[in-house]
Design a protein around this nucleic acid. Structure first.
Lengths: 331, 331
DNA sequence: ACTATCAATGTAAGCGCTTGCAATACCCTT
DNA sequence: AAGGGTATTGCAAGCGCTTACATTGATAGT
């Protein structure tokens, strides 16, 4: 059986008795079409079951309504909430999100950037830090909106929406010091941002008169299991910490579970903090003190930037969405 | 400064001294081009920094190399591993994945399907069950590959890759019975699949001489917090269960944490099983007995189907990837 | 009544690529 | 030397839509 070719703009135009241009206008900016015409076209679209070919539209209009989101991973990522919010937010505007996983290495990133560029995406959203100079240059010279999220680099490739990781680290140092902790231990994932938070923490801590915190580096992506390992690694420390600052809520959760299994009470004997304020943090026993990043807010700002760009309005290139320490039971 | 328009196929063809057709062939099926010509084109592409416009290619070739993955959510989904594997797998073939979140309701699903169809995607991959008849019909009549994953319906829309949830439930019943448990309690997310597993479990359990298991329904998406609530809900039961079968590892984890907080030892006083075999399951204390679904395998089968379709080969429409009960400490 | 203005629509030229078909060149066969 | 294949390339017609520009008719200003 040969499927009858799906209707095109032309078909709709024919049954509505207007030109394709008018139908196109009706579809993209109805206000430009007279009311009576609108109605005719509406019913023609309706009856034919017409579905616009977005590919053709993208080619002709030089606007793909496709947005590439490049993230390191999604299985256990701290970015998940942001990504989810972003996809939700973008979808409402008729955009689609092409999700690409870049992993830890640069080759994948470059390949995915090339792909995104080839697909003429309207914007590329980065959620990892692009440290490779060459890649940054390539992105800069591409005439596409590039949004770096989560971080807030001094010189964004194009636009950056995020917060200062250094400041977040400092703030946590102040917070814990105020709470009376004196021997912090940092569990730091090997990612630029985590490192930055760690140095922010250490700098502040020392500046406030504390001793240089001990630290343990762990691989990314960080996960529950690393928390357990991190707890065990504490045994090797000369002096036991009174609080462990974890690079993610996952690590914090794993560490707490392992501590309990070892008979150590949290926070009485050992306090713990996480990062990311994942939903689980508020449900854990004890509930986990964490740092909240408003993923939905980031998503909204991304949309705002995109819309501004669409109308070629000027926008600030560094948007600070801040962070909030959420004090809970674990520290 | 006006950016010099990025090079097109035509430009490459010109510098290589061949026609655009030849360059196109070189790009898509090099073997059709003579060796010497290949070399000329290669260097022309190289020197111009040419990047194919995939949108134009999609329109002309009627092949978008875009695959839509429609999932309920990603933040805490049991599908995450599958989705991640799929994105990774697909990307290697020059495809990109458009990820769309459908949430629990049908409207979003329909909207996203329309969008996918409009974008001329090569395939639509579904990870939720599409129960709406109308939507199923629409998908059936669309000339696009539709792959339903995780479930294994009797009459797939097109191709289904998954396993029998009913059988998984039955198997778990056998497993727990053999281990000597006698009073199972089911924590069942309100999703078709979970329900199916639950009925499989109950059917088998009763058939094997057990009493009808008690059950608690919880909302989707399931998460850690629900595990805690589910544990507390046990108090309302007339008779305390000796094992709780959770609809997901998240729920199991939350339940265990809450049980421990209440001084109940797992599995000594209460056994627990999860579902999904998330990475965390093997790291939890106690490690969680779960059901493993090979997400990477599903991803590979998806690719196989897609490739077969590309060469219009016949393929089976129901591919069973099975499941494995992973016995660990919690039950 | 006459023109300037404007809203509504139509005309048609692309957007950058793929591919069926035709043309050409080259190599065998007989 | 003619006929038949085969491998390689070019020609040109789209793919289905958007949009600059032209056209038309109506409204308003004088």
């Amino acid at each position: 059986m040969d499927t009858p070719r799906s209707p095109r703009l032309e078909d709709v135009a024919a049954t509505a008795g207007v030109s394709t241009a008018t139908v196109s206008r009706y579809l993209n900016s109805p206000e430009k079409v007279a009311l009576a015409t609108r109605e005719k076209i509406r019913s023609a679209v309706q009856s034919s079951g017409y579905l616009p070919n977005l590919t053709a539209g993208a080619l002709a209009g030089n606007r793909s309504r496709l947005i590439a989101a490049l993230v390191p991973d999604i299985a256990q990522s701290i970015f998940n909430d942001t990504v989810e919010a972003m996809i939700g937010e973008l979808a409402t505007d008729g955009n689609s999100v092409v999700l690409a996983l870049t992993g830890p290495d640069n080759d994948r990133l470059n390949a995915e950037i090339a792909m995104a560029l080839g697909r003429q995406v309207d914007a590329i959203i980065l959620t990892g830090i692009v440290s490779d100079e060459e890649t940054r240059e390539r992105l800069k010279s591409a005439s596409v909106t590039v949004i770096e999220t989560w971080g807030l680099p001094e010189n964004p490739i194009d636009v950056a929406i995020g917060f200062s990781h250094h400041a977040a680290g400092e703030e946590m140092a102040r917070f814990l010091r105020a709470r009376g902790y004196r021997r912090p231990h940092l569990v730091v994932p090997r990612s630029t941002r985590s490192q930055r938070r760690a140095s922010g923490f250490a700098a502040r801590w020392v500046a406030d008169g504390g001793a240089e915190p001990t630290r343990l580096e762990v691989n990314v992506p960080s996960h529950f299991g690393q928390g357990r390992l991190s707890f065990r690694a504490l045994a090797d420390l000369a002096e036991q910490p009174d609080v462990v600052i974890c690079g993610s809520d996952w690590i914090a959760q794993g560490l707490i579970v392992e501590a309990h299994a070892a008979g150590i009470r949290v926070p009485d004997q050992l306090a713990v903090t996480g990062f990311g304020n994942l939903r689980m943090a508020g449900d854990m026993r004890p509930t986990i003190t964490s740092v909240d990043i408003d993923g939905a807010r980031i998503a909204r700002e991304v949309m705002r930037v995109l819309r501004a760009r669409a109308h070629s309005q000027e926008i600030e290139t560094r948007i600070d969405v801040g962070f909030r320490i959420i004090a809970r039971e674990s520290a």
